[in-house]
Write a protein that binds this DNA or RNA. Structure first.
Length: 1144
RNA sequence: GGGCCUGUAGCUCAGCUGGCUAGAGCGCACGACUGAUAAUCGUGAGGUCGGUGGUUCAAGUCCACCUAGGCCCA
């Protein structure tokens, strides 16, 4: 086998990606990374299940990079990190996709197509993009076990979910209620708050709004108000949904809000009226300037309507007022049309009076219930109570209502024109956006009836169904709830123990949400999902919640015995047998469970509640259900739960994060996860949201193919903190590729090139670090600091900082400084200890970087590691991902040395800057530079790096200036950190006194090490610690200064220096010729140079030097050379000579 | 309307517990280097740190309000 480090001409990360993937697969590296940690402590990671019926996007690469890198890191730390993939398979999106594909609607399910058929189609459809997901997973290098994923539709998974539900039921945390919920008539489904969470649900819409006039009835309660006026009295209430006005049964005011009675005119009819409105909000409807206008001058139709405040009252005294029904389509039964008090009334908007329709508003429902106010309901043909709007989103058709009800309570005359009309045009296929809405019809009618005070268009934020894109309604629905409010306090307590990244998401977004928690609405009236395992008797007096297949089997047995079922479909189910076969003889979905009839304690027939549960409960159950707990893994569950780490997008805060936390708190009194990163969004480069519609979405497959996964991952991690939004710009990926990977690769190539020449294989004895040259010890010191800090950042879940540290080390310290300054050590010369140290040092740096960066850039780092390790065999592991994370060695960290080198870097940079200023090439040697040294320490620092600096900037010597004989111009600055606390308010004056010190005073201060300044009456004693004195200038010299360092350069070029410069120019030209001629790095040459007065002396004098640098056996001068064998070169602007270079 | 995040150079981002002349990369301009060369390096221009007010000897940093953008929720 070749003992050479691989050298590749091309650097193709995308190709490396593929090669390494093959390597991983063939050698089962992922499996080994888990297996090899067997018996070690576990690091529990839980994967949030993606929905397999959607295609993966670039944001998945982001989230999965974060997940992957910590799992890899923890593996390197020695933990066993099991990673089980999962699929979220239930829910509305799947159903809608199938409906779409089959061209059916919800109504057709159970009629045109059986539920069984439909669910079979869902089961198939949901996994349709599985291949794509697997491909992405592999190509991006996301290590997760896809062979045995948890699937939420799996019987075992469902069984665990049932178990959890039963536990909730036992604790009486599961109950049936009725509430106003977001409902999508277009989808025919209620929406969970989690579904309303979907990005883009809330959208600005323009609706017709109306301030309606509710006519107060003059009675005992209101008589005092009527005494104040001579007209009818109206309460003004504003609504953005006029279609709810026919369902109005109350008005709600704020007890502590002041309301004004205002005498004015209806602007549309011109009829004199008195209206009531929150005083604070008057300005919107009654511009101050019209207050002056005399009421009696008003001419109907005039836009300027005069008004006059008659009196004001507090909302509290309005409670109990009666008013006339605004729209008399349907008579409500029970107490109605009263003024109520509510704490949700504000004076932010509208009139300070809330139009209350208990069937269409959550607050409305609550306040009505508390005050015993009736809802406006109708009775349908089946005798059920319904709101005025049916499930399709239209006013109930008269033919769908109970005849008796219509006769007694419906005003056919007024309702007739509206029955069957959709309340939103979006629901009506025959209508477009441009058609007038039902709101307009209603409002126009009110206008003619003197019941509308102000009509206007209003833009507001309104939720839309995330799938159909159509507006939702708030609608009364029966539901099963999880009583999350009962555990609110505990959830908050446990939340405080979770390490959130960023912390603000935990305390703010999530914490505040917990504070305002409402009960979790669990029911979904759909088909494809986990069925609610609750059976209820017809009279609803008895119920049972089933918690396992075994329990179901025995309950069915009872039912069979009671004669309610003929046979037990679970007859063949073997209790306790967890095999796939045993669990595949039935299907816990509908319609299987619907067909099961159970018998109650008292012998009554029980039917299943015909609902499914919220899919979020499925995903929140994954920590348990993925392992079929407690039916399996009961004994080792403490090894699998709770999770040490999860990560998902911040949009999951109220989704998955919440459901995990809620279930864990309620049933296990535990957190579900200890550390969590919620990452931000991936936006396009302009900061816009990516969407298919806009065509700005980045295709992850294409991006990986084009750039390779590593640069993509590295870019995503380094560019912004994970929790900030990422403005994704491919040019940034390119930059990362060039800047970081390119540099690292170059550094490796450089190493490989010379290591191969010299046959370095790290076999020879390790050179003791203490005996290595200073620059080696410097880079090793930095490397150890790097190891320490990178580990800290990973441990703190700060991947961005870790990656930036690594990148900085590679590009700045390793490549730009260490390798650049050390190049000469690698080429030519003996393979002595010094050279060995150079190789070993560079090798260690490369190897360590590979190990540190492996979690983030798993492909290239594995290649780098193996390219190195295959030759040296320093590690027995066959992949970097099987190695242990490097440990830093404190004794190798030399901060003084690091500081010294920083001085060297600064000095070099300053000198190069000076050279540039006066246009002297670096190749031209200069005699000396001078550095004022304020103290011994600094001089020692510079001395330590003297040769490096001199070499780098091509200057012969450094001269230290310690004498303050007056040649140096100094600057003195106060040390605020020391003086500030001491002198407080005096600081300003102290500071200016110090700044105003003369050169001579500074010199005296330095000499005496103490100084007194006068501030008014006070004398202040200063020591050298209180100030900073910097030499700023050396008159007559070329000077640069940066921070506390000042340097001067002697730019005089003597003849001798000039000759040396010429020699260097020659060397440069000869090297170029060597290269152009394609000579090998080790080829020996002969050099023949045409004479020229300007170079003759230089050549003679530096013959030796030129020869050694260019590997020339001979360097000789000649009168002339035949042109065809020579090259014409320029040494100076106007000096051209011929030169011949031949290989020996 | 509420909660949270973000606003620093043309772009992407650093800037820890307040302290001295606010930094880096990219881009741009200019230049150097030339056996790491489909590389590398240097120099320069470019900022009223979103705005206003406050606390403080001292504010990019702390506080209040405002403003713009984003996410989530009403």
């Amino acid at each position: 086998m070749s003992k050479k480090f691989p050298e590749n001409k091309k650097f193709d990360l995308s190709k490396i990606n593929k090669e390494i993937n093959v390597f991983w697969k063939e050698n089962e590296i992922f499996e080994k990374s888990v297996e090899s940690r067997k018996g070690n402590p576990t690091f529990v990671f839980n994967e949030g299940p993606p929905s397999a019926n959607g295609k993966p996007g670039i944001h998945h690469v982001m989230a999965r990079t974060i997940k992957d890198l910590f799992c890899r890191y923890k593996t390197q730390q020695g933990f066993q990190v099991k990673r089980k993939a999962g699929w979220d398979t239930h829910g509305l999106p799947v159903e809608l996709a199938v409906e779409n594909a089959k061209g059916i609607t919800k109504e057709d399910i159970g009629t045109k197509i059986s539920i069984e058929e439909f669910n079979a189609a869902c089961r198939k459809d949901v996994m349709k993009f599985t291949n794509m997901w697997e491909e992405l997973t592999e190509s991006m290098g996301y290590w997760i076990n896809m062979d045995d994923p948890y699937i939420t539709y799996d019987n075992k998974y469902i069984e665990t979910v049932w178990y959890l539900l039963k536990e909730l039921h036992k604790k009486e945390l599961l109950y049936k209620g009725y509430s106003i919920q977001p409902y999508s008539p277009a989808a025919g489904s209620g929406l969970s708050t989690h579904e309303l969470n979907q990005p883009g649900c809330y959208r600005d819409v323009k609706d017709t709004t109306v301030v309606a006039q509710f006519k107060v009835i003059n009675n005992d309660k209101s008589v005092s108000l009527f005494n104040a006026t001579d007209t009818d009295l109206y309460i003004l209430a504003w609504t953005t949904t006029p279609w709810t006005l026919p369902s109005n049964t109350a008005l709600t005011v704020g007890a502590n809000i002041e309301y004004a009675l205002i005498r004015t005119f209806n602007p549309y009819t011109g009829i004199p009226i008195t209206v009531m409105i929150a005083k604070e909000l008057m300005g919107r409807y009654f511009p101050e300037k019209y207050a002056e206008m005399p009421l009696e001058d008003y001419v109907p139709g005039n836009k300027h309507v005069p008004f006059k405040i008659l009196t004001t009252v507090m909302g509290g005294v309005l409670e109990g007022l009666s008013y006339e029904q605004l729209i008399d389509w349907v008579k409500p039964e029970g107490k109605s049309f009263k003024v109520l008090l509510g704490d949700f009334v504000t004076t932010e908007e509208g009139t300070g009076v809330v139009h209350t329709s208990p069937t269409f508003g959550a607050d409305d429902y609550r306040v009505a219930l508390a005050n015993d106010i009736a809802s406006l309901i109708v009775i349908d043909k089946d005798g059920n109570e319904q709101p005025l709007v049916d499930r399709k989103g239209r006013f109930f058709r008269i033919k769908d209502l109970d005849e008796g009800f219509v006769m007694n309570q419906v005003n056919l005359e007024t309702y007739g024109a509206f029955e069957g009309k959709y309340v939103k045009n979006e629901y009506d296929e025959t209508k477009s956006e441009k058609d007038p809405t039902i709101d307009v019809d209603i409002v126009v009618q009110l206008k003619t009836e003197n019941k509308a005070f102000r009509i206007e268009k209003h833009i507001h934020n309104y939720p839309h169904c995330w799938r159909t894109d159509k507006p939702i309604l708030y609608y009364p629905l029966d539901s099963w709830f999880v009583r999350t409010t009962a555990m609110k306090e505990r959830m908050m307590e446990l939340n405080d123990t979770i390490n959130w990244k960023p912390a603000s998401t935990g305390t703010g977004r999530f914490g505040k949400w917990l504070e305002n928690l409402v009960d979790w609405n669990l029911s979904r009236a759909r088909f494809w999902g986990t069925p609610l395992p609750i059976w209820v008797t017809e009279d609803k007096s008895e119920q049972i919640c089933i918690g396992s297949v075994a329990e179901l089997k025995s309950e069915v047995d009872r039912s069979v015995k009671a004669g309610l079922m003929k046979t037990n479909p679970l007859e063949n189910f073997m209790i306790g047998d967890n095999s796939e076969e045993n669990y595949s003889i039935f299907d816990l979905h509908r319609p299987f469970v619907d067909e099961i009839v159970l018998v109650s304690e008292s012998g009554q027939k029980m039917l299943r509640e015909p609902v499914l549960i919220d899919v979020w409960f499925d995903s929140g159950s994954m920590p348990y259900a993925q392992y079929h707990y407690p039916f399996e893994h009961k004994d080792d569950f403490d090894q699998l739960y709770p999770a040490d780490f999860i990560a998902e997008g911040v949009d999951q805060t109220r989704g998955w994060f919440f459901t995990l936390h809620a279930i864990a708190t309620m049933l296990f009194d535990s957190v579900s996860f200890k550390n969590i990163i919620s990452n931000g969004l991936v936006l396009d480069k302009a900061g816009n949201k990516m969407s298919k519609r806009l065509g700005n979405a980045v295709d992850p497959f294409h991006a990986i193919q084009e750039h390779g996964s590593d640069p993509l991952r590295w870019y995503m991690i380094t560019n912004a903190q994970p929790w900030d939004n990422l403005k994704f710009d491919v040019s940034g990926v390119d930059e990362v590729k060039r800047k970081f990977f390119g540099t690292l690769y170059n550094t490796y190539s450089f190493f490989a090139l010379y290591a191969n020449v010299d046959g370095f294989t790290y076999e020879a004895e390790e050179v003791q670090v203490e005996t290595r040259p200073e620059i080696d010890r410097w880079v090793i010191s930095l490397l150890n600091t790097l190891i320490k800090e990178v580990k800290e950042q990973y441990e703190n879940y700060e991947p961005t900082r870790a990656a930036r540290l690594i990148q900085d080390f590679v590009t700045e310290n390793l490549s730009n400084w260490y390798v650049r300054l050390n190049r000469k050590r690698y080429w030519g010369g003996e393979f002595d200890t010094n050279k060995r140290a150079a190789y070993q040092t560079l090798y260690t740096c490369l190897e360590t970087v590979a190990m540190l960066a492996a979690p983030i850039a798993p492909f290239y780092m594995d290649k780098l590691f193996n390219d190195l390790n295959r030759i040296t065999k320093r590690h027995t592991e066959e992949s970097v991902h099987l190695t242990r994370f490097p440990e830093h060695n404190d004794s190798l960290i030399d901060t003084a040395l690091e500081a010294r080198m920083e001085v060297a870097q600064k000095l070099s940079s300053m000198i190069l800057g000076l050279r540039r200023k006066v246009n002297i090439k670096v190749r031209q040697p200069l005699n000396r530079m001078m550095i004022p040294v304020p103290d011994q320490v600094f001089q020692e620092q510079v001395d330590g790096v003297k040769s490096l600096v001199l070499n780098e900037v091509n200057v012969k010597d450094i001269e230290y200036i310690t004498d303050t004989a007056g040649i140096l111009v100094k600057r003195i600055k106060p040390n605020f950190k020391v003086l500030g606390p001491r002198y407080g308010k005096l600081m300003k004056e102290v500071s200016s006194a110090i700044n105003e010190m003369e050169q001579e005073e500074i010199a005296r201060f330095e000499k005496e090490k103490a100084f007194h300044i006068r501030i008014g009456e006070e004398s202040i004693a200063l020591t050298l610690e209180d100030v900073e004195i910097i030499s700023e200038d050396i008159p007559g010299w070329l000077v640069a200064n940066e921070g506390a360092i000042t340097v001067a350069l002697d730019i005089g070029i003597t003849e001798e220096l000039r000759m040396e410069g010429v020699a260097r120019e020659l060397i440069n030209r000869i090297q170029n010729i060597r290269k152009e001629s394609g000579f090998d790095v080790t080829d020996k040459i002969n050099v023949l140079i045409e004479k020229h007065e300007l170079i003759n002396i230089a050549v003679k004098k530096h013959k030796q030097y030129i020869g050694s640098q260019t590997l020339a056996n001979s360097v000789s001068l000649t009168d002339s050379i035949e042109n065809d064998l020579s090259k014409r070169i320029d040494i100076d602007d106007d000096v051209f000579i011929n030169i011949r270079v031949t290989r020996v």
